[in-house]
Amino acid sequence: MPLLEVRDLHVEFHTRDGVAKAVNGVSYSVDAGETLAVLGESGSGKSVTAQAIMGILDIPPGKITGGEILFQGRDLLKLKEDERRKVRGAEMAMIFQDALSSLNPVLSVGDQLGEMFVVHRGMSKKDAKAKAVELMDRVRIPAAKERVGQYPHQFSGGMRQRIMIAMAMALEPALIIADEPTTALDVTVQAQVMDLLAELQQEFHMGLILITHDLGVVADVADKIAVMYAGRIVEHAPVHDIYKAPAHPYTRGLLDSIPRLDQKGEELYAIKGLPPNLMAIPPGCAFNPRCPRAQDICRTDEPPLFRVTEDGARRSACHFWRETLRDA
């Protein structure tokens, strides 16, 4: 049994202008100690899926219209809000993109870290503060004891993200969801933060869902990758297979848009067109208007997630996955 299994999840947003289908039948799973990278552009549904798993979706306008989220065998969507709340933070935790805005500006970092122990473990404020110092040491924040009473704005970007990580790790949850944890950071700091995250994950044998649009970050840390487009998974594969040979034209496009040293001076490739409007997803394959391989069938028939390998570890939602793979 995997640690987390998302089955055929559907999420819609009901707005004044219409219904946006943000997530349309997403399934993926994560084992303990495993890292799943979820890749995709803005609006691909990667963050919305994560928020649905955490149970922090804004409802309304958001609405989960179908599917199951099995966590340690329990369907989270069937839990009462109070039971759900006890899972949040304690058994699964989330790291957000912008640590400055994600931390409360008027509470000291010690308060915000310690709060986890006060609320979930019923600790006294004093013990919680000692725990907070311990956590800050863990994520290698220098002079933790002196800095525990300081406020978020007094820390650097990298240090703030370490605090976010510490907060997520506080109760040693089984699953961590990191939503673009390094996007807001300097490149030099990015690597340090990713290393720290990977290290802690190994140590506590946690499942990690890493949401990103940066293929560079993924290569070193992920075990498998799910590529999302217009609320669906279009390709799912062990990490090295994807880099070697993508089985979906969209993944191909993403890989080609990474700047490379050996192509210095050449114009950088960009996937033409824009991601579809989620209120009017094109019929057939959602990617067809932007796809260099699109045929008539792509405009009429929605491709299922074909098995690329026998065991189903590798899948692609492209009618022409064989051709894509061959040409890679």
């Binding site: 899972v87 949040r88 933070g89 957000f96 912008d98 994600s102 931390l103 986890m116 609320v119």
Partner: peptide, 12 residues
Amino acid sequence: DYLRTAVAKGLP
């Protein structure tokens, strides 16, 4: 954002 964090922390 920090309020979303508070919710994600599982606070009542």
